[in-house]
Amino acid sequence: MQKMKCSICGHVYDPVLGDKDAPAGTDFQSLPEGWVCPVCLAAKPLFRPI
């Protein structure tokens, strides 16, 4: 599972940790289409692999 970084604010989504909307172990690609960055509300397509 790969970490993804928001190209707007730099927030890193770590699939090992998940976030408030996704349990630990949730791969970025498995997040719903409407998922947004919890920091700046950027859409999923604005995230890049790191």
Rank of each mutant, 00 (worst) to 15 (best):
G18V: 09
A24F: 01
K3N: 14
P45K: 03
P38C: 04
V36M: 03
P23W: 02
G25R: 08
D27K: 15
G18H: 08
P15V: 05
V39Q: 13
C40S: 05
E33I: 09
H11I: 09
Q2T: 15
P49F: 05
W35R: 10
G25W: 01
C6W: 02
G34L: 04
D21N: 12
D21I: 00
K3C: 12
P15T: 14
L17V: 15
E33L: 08
S30W: 04
V12P: 02
E33V: 08
V16M: 13
V39N: 12
G25L: 03
D14W: 06
V12G: 04
Y13F: 11
C9I: 08
Q2F: 04
L41R: 15
P23C: 06
G25E: 07
Q2N: 14
C37T: 04
M4G: 00
V12E: 08
G34T: 12
S30A: 14
V12F: 01
A24W: 05
T26Y: 02
L17N: 15
A42F: 00
E33Y: 06
G10F: 02
Q29Y: 07
A43V: 07
V36S: 07
E33G: 15
D21P: 00
A22N: 10
Y13C: 02
D21C: 03
P49V: 13
L17K: 15
P45C: 01
G18P: 09
F28I: 07
I8E: 14
I50H: 10
K44H: 03
D21Y: 07
V36Q: 12
A22W: 00
E33Q: 14
M4L: 06
V16K: 15
L46E: 12
W35F: 04
V39M: 10
C9T: 12
G18I: 09
A43S: 10
K20W: 03
V16G: 11
K5A: 08
D21M: 07
C6Q: 07
C40W: 02
V36W: 00
P49S: 14
A42E: 07
K5I: 10
V39R: 12
I50V: 13
L17A: 15
K44I: 00
P15A: 09
L41Q: 14
M1H: 13
S30V: 03
P38F: 01
G25A: 06
H11D: 11
D21Q: 11
V36H: 05
L17I: 15
D19R: 07
D27Q: 14
D14C: 09
P23E: 14
A43H: 12
L46K: 11
C6I: 02
Y13G: 05
A24H: 04
C9L: 01
P15L: 03
G25M: 03
D27Y: 11
F47D: 04
I50D: 10
A42T: 08
C37S: 03
V16W: 03
G34F: 02
G18S: 13
P45G: 03
V39W: 08
P49L: 05
G18N: 14
V36P: 00
P15G: 13
A22F: 00
P15C: 11
P49Y: 08
T26H: 03
S30N: 13
